[in-house]
């Protein structure tokens, strides 16, 4: 059974430096759509990537985009060449991105984020305006409804 919320909790407890972006960020802002995976933008330093690996321990993380779904086996050395990580786990898929189109690298994404409380623990999430900017930059047909929902949420909150 998928437990995307559980994965986020594990990332927070493992002190992973990340910002929640993508469809699940839209859900957290109030969108009624469903998404199949977690998208995070994160610091791609070896230390942080190893924290992600540790957070996903026992959930059988694998590289989702590889033909044989190779297991996630990060080391300080092989971490250095990574730009993105597309993983699947027993609790659901997670995409770790080094940058977000329309916003920039992790530092810029972090500046466009806000803190929310999840189960009493602080978590960074992309602000709604920045999420709309990112979705517009992606320009995919499937993002149009998300953009319209997010704009409606902005109007509700005014």
């Amino acid at each position: 059974m998928d437990d995307l919320t559980g994965i986020i909790g594990r990332l927070i407890r493992a002190e992973v430096d990340f910002v929640l972006v993508g469809g699940l960020a839209a859900v957290t802002h109030g969108s009624s759509m469903t998404t199949q995976d977690i998208d995070i933008c994160c610091d791609f330093s070896p230390e942080n990537l190893l924290r992600i690996q540790s957070a996903l321990e026992n959930l059988n993380p694998v590289h989702r985009m590889t033909t044989n779904h190779l297991p996630l086996e990060l080391t300080e050395i092989n971490c250095r060449s990574l730009k993105n990580l597309y993983l699947d786990t027993d609790w659901g898929p997670i995409d770790c991105l080094g940058e977000v189109l329309g916003l920039g690298n992790y530092d810029e994404v972090k500046l466009a984020s806000e803190t929310i409380e999840l189960d009493g623990i602080e978590c960074l999430i992309l602000r709604i305006g920045a999420l709309i900017t990112a979705k517009k930059a992606m320009g995919r047909p499937k993002d149009i409804e998300t953009i319209k929902q997010l704009e409606a949420i902005q109007k509700e909150e005014r």
Partner: peptide, 29 residues
Amino acid sequence: AYGIDISLIRANLRLTPTERLRRHDKALN
């Protein structure tokens, strides 16, 4: 007009972020 049900969004906005995520997980499952 695009087909978005505003009542669903309003219902979500009455929840905390954690409750929204949990509700989403249930729907996904």
